[in-house]
Design a protein around this nucleic acid. Structure first.
Lengths: 352, 352
DNA sequence: GTGAAAGCGCTAACAA
DNA sequence: TTGTTAGCGCTTTCAC
């Protein structure tokens, strides 16, 4: 029986060697038992090792393992946004995180949250990416610019598997992407309004720094065009996700010579703000003005009136992203990149 | 000049030894330069090392460092809830996470998110806590029970510094705690309604499994009692945070022989749901019925009517928790535990 | 089926 | 001021 002098009566955590000593086997055997391989062990040894583990309350040291295996069972969740303070607060991104987190946890992976403000210095992130701390990354992209590409470049250079959500990365990185069809959703929403007979349709546009705001506007624009309805700049307001501007926007819209009979808001929160303000002017929704949202957040269904909106399968997107990054990790980053586009769906409720 | 055979022309990441070789110094010197100590180095050596680092694009291996130092610059954020799927979705906890995350990031710490469903098997968590992966933990507690205590017990046994948020842990763990004064907030809200002349005050009670729901009810109860207003069970509904029940609750309340003239909701989301439903019955807020919320989420101010509610300094609580856990880590868990109670504040808007 | 030992990359004690 | 080296705890190859 070999003995370890090092850990004689140490107050610190027991090591694998301690377990080996107590069980009367070598450290290799303990490792084989713990990891169920790569070599077999006798039933008797297994039993003795397990008992020793229990007795010492032994737990493997993740750093030592990570050092040896170059695997940490950790995925970095990168949120690249103009204001990552909203990382958790925005219902919207929160739902994606929920699906992602839950699924990764199921598979025994840990999650390191990495908020990045667009434009911030990437030194720290670069260090993190190259520190062998992460097996893979899931990046929520919100826009396309050289700043965002610089981030992706860092991930690429660190040779870490990466799955992008919401916006597709440039092809040359070879990253997988999971997006959803914003444009089709917006088109469908506006087209529905047109089919209901609306001709004067307003749009509260999102923050144009975000690619999704542009696409939602594009969908609005295309639907009008395809229906032969002239585009009127006066009906398009906002250019922000911030709902506090709605207080000013609504009276402006109402004061138009030819005011809108319907409003397509680029988010549910905006739609709710619009309806709240319309109430001030005793304008009834949907009788006087119809309102459509986008996102289908939890409150959309509970609001009065329940909101007609575009449903994005955010939780499913998060879950799929988790599956995908795990596949990439499994394949040691040699998997052919995948590009999934989730469909969105018009949910008819009572605001139209 | 010493040379490393190991890394001659390896395709993998450069190591500290590679840097040493290139700079023509020993690995110790490189370490001293990188860590700015514990020993001094000549300016010339510093310069050569820095250049070599840049040339090789060297980044330290976090696992090797962690193994050596028993420090990982990582804090675990544990969310102990009945439904941790709501971890990100609940505005409420999200704001705390925002403050926490931002502050820790500033200080160069990483964040591992650990959602725990109350009652789930703690084996995995125990392994994580004992894996030398976390320097400390911040735990959001939502209730008091043996299940929660078992979790704290694991953290205690793992000898990891811990700061609890929202609910105080049992004294014997020696953990710091940051809470806020729910009870006083509820008391103040209800007392304000009483001072406005209300005598029939309803309460939408939160999920009683949560300690905060109990305290908010208690505040309501005490305020009535102190004002000599008899408590009426028929006016207290809910017992859930789920706003979907409000649709049924509001007509019940309105149908009472002696219906309430004011409602104290235990959350803003509930308050908003109440107002939305009251509108269905053409009941005006605040003219016919006054409504007070709790939490002061972002939407509270933007809602129509803007919500009178109790403001909880959630972001500040998160920030303070970050500072506190860092102090505990710094002090190697020998800091005297602290117990902070943040005051809450009645914010008067238009729903009363 | 098992033991001995090398080595992952780093820090810091020891020696010079 | 610098170089040498032990050792953190683990996995896995090599030898038996």
């Amino acid at each position: 029986m070999s003995t370890s002098k090092r850990h004689k009566n140490s107050p610190s955590r027991p090591t694998l060697q301690d377990v080996a000593d107590l069980a009367g086997v070598s450290s290799a055997v303990v490792s084989y038992v713990i990891n169920d391989g790569p070599r077999g062990t006798s039933e008797e040894a297994k039993a003795r090792v397990r008992e020793a583990i229990k007795e010492l309350n032994y737990h493997p040291n993740a750093n030592a393992r990570g050092l040896r295996l170059k695997r940490t069972k950790t995925v970095g969740i990168v949120v690249n946004d103009f204001d990552p303070m909203k990382l958790f607060i925005a219902q919207y991104s929160a739902m994606m995180l929920t699906g992602l987190t839950e699924r990764l946890k199921e598979k025994g992976y840990y999650i390191l949250v990495i908020p990045i403000t667009i434009g911030e210095d990437l030194k720290n992130i670069e260090a993190l990416l190259n520190s062998e701390r992460l097996d893979g990354t899931v990046v929520r992209l919100t826009e396309h610019s050289s700043l965002t590409d610089q981030l992706l470049e860092r991930i690429y250079e660190a040779k870490i598997p990466c799955v992008c959500i919401e916006e597709p990365p440039a092809e040359n990185f070879g990253f997988s992407a999971i997006t959803y069809d914003d444009l089709a959703g917006a088109y469908e929403a506006v087209n529905y309004l047109i089919n209901q007979g609306h001709r004067r349709i307003g749009h509260i546009r999102g923050d144009l720094r975000y690619a999704s705001a542009k696409r939602r506007f594009e969908g609005y624009y295309s639907a009008l065009k395809d229906a032969g309805i002239p585009y009127d700049d006066a009906l398009v307001r906002g250019d922000t996700w911030d709902t506090s501007i709605i207080e000013g926007v609504v009276p402006e819209l109402l004061a138009l010579d030819n005011p809108p009979t319907a409003i397509f808001a680029s988010s549910d929160l905006t739609a709710i703000a619009v309806i709240n303000q319309l109430r001030r002017y005793r304008v009834q929704v949907p009788q006087d003005i119809a309102v459509v949202g986008f996102d289908d957040i939890e409150m959309a269904a509970q609001f009065v009136p329940p909101l007609t909106t575009i449903h994005i399968p955010l939780v499913e997107i998060g879950e799929r992203a988790a599956d995908l990054i795990l596949e990439h990790i499994e394949a040691e980053n040699n998997l052919k990149p995948d590009r999934l586009v989730f469909p969105v769906e018009l949910v008819l409720r009572d605001s139209v």
